[in-house]
C-alpha cells in the first residue's frame, strides 16, 4: 500500500536538502555564466592561442562526464595540497562544466547575428565597446535565453551527481530517507515532485523573461 503519510513526511528532510541543490546549481550557473562569457570571448578572439585554449576547454569539459569531473577534482585537489570543503569543490566543478556549454550557447547566438547589425554600427563610426554593449550583446542574450534556461534545468538535475562527494542534496537525502523508512517509492516520488517543482518554476521564469525581452 502506498503510504501517504511517508510521502508527506518525506518532504520535510528533502526540502531541507534542496537548499544544496539550489545552491550548487544556482551558484554553478552564475559562476558558469561568468566563466562561459570569458571562454566565449577567447573563442571569438583574433588571437590564435586564446582560440585554441577555448577549443580545448570546451572539448575536454563536454567530453568528460560531470560525475568523473567531480571525482577528479575531489581527489585531485588534496594531492596538489589544496584542501577545500566538498561543497566548494562541487560548485566550482559544476560551474566549470557549465561554462563549456554556456560559452558555446553564446558563441552560437553571437555568430547567428547578421553581419549587417555591426556593419550599420561601424558605418556611423561606433567604437567596438558600444557595438558590443548596445548592439551585439542585447540581441545575443535574448536569443540565447531559451538555451540558457535549458542548460540551467539540466544543471539542477545534474546537481544530484554532487552527492558522490558527500553533499546531502535532494537525491542523497532521499537515499538516506528511503533506507530509514523502507519506503523508497514514497520517498523518491517526493524527490521527483521537488525536482519537478523547481524546474517548472525555472521554465516559468524563463518564459516570462523571454516574453519581456521579446521585440
Amino acid at each position: 500500500m502506498f503510504s501517504w503519510t511517508t510521502f508527506g513526511d518525506s518532504f520535510i528532510p528533502l526540502l531541507w536538502a534542496a537548499r544544496f541543490t539550489v545552491l550548487v546549481s544556482g551558484l554553478g550557473i552564475l559562476l558558469g555564466l561568468v566563466i562561459g562569457a570569458l571562454i566565449c570571448a577567447a573563442a571569438l578572439s583574433p588571437m590564435k592561442p586564446l582560440r585554441l585554449f577555448a577549443a580545448l576547454w570546451v572539448s575536454f569539459l563536454r567530453g568528460v562526464p560531470l560525475l568523473v569531473q567531480l571525482l577528479l577534482v575531489y581527489f585531485l585537489l588534496p594531492v596538489i595540497g589544496i584542501n577545500v570543503p566538498a561543497l566548494v569543490a562541487a560548485v566550482v566543478t559544476v560551474a566549470i562544466c557549465a561554462s563549456a556549454y554556456i560559452s558555446e550557447i553564446w558563441r552560437g547566438a553571437i555568430n547567428a547575428l547578421p553581419r549587417g547589425q555591426t556593419e550599420a554600427a561601424k558605418a556611423i563610426g561606433m567604437a567596438p565597446l558600444p557595438q558590443w554593449t548596445r548592439i551585439i550583446l542585447p540581441q545575443a542574450v535574448t536569443m540565447s535565453l531559451p538555451a540558457l534556461i535549458n542548460e540551467l534545468i539540466l544543471l539542477v538535475k545534474a546537481s544530484s551527481l554532487v552527492s558522490v562527494v558527500g553533499i546531502m542534496e535532494i537525491t542523497r537525502a532521499s537515499q538516506a530517507q528511503a533506507a530509514t523508512t523502507f519506503r523508497p517509492l514514497e520517498v523518491y516520488l517526493a524527490a521527483a515532485c521537488i525536482y519537478l517543482a523547481i524546474n517548472l518554476c525555472l521554465a516559468g521564469v524563463g518564459r516570462w523573461l523571454e516574453h519581456r525581452m521579446a521585440v
Binding site: P114, G116, Q117, E119, A120, I124, M126, Q139
Partner: peptide, 20 residues
C-alpha cells in the same frame, strides 16, 4: 577611421536596423 566614417552615411539593402 571611425572619425572619417562619422561624416559618411550608409544605407543598406537589408536596412540593418537594430531590432531591439
Amino acid at each position: 577611421l571611425r572619425e572619417m566614417r562619422r561624416t559618411i552615411g550608409m544605407v543598406f539593402q537589408q536596412f540593418n536596423l537594430w531590432p531591439h
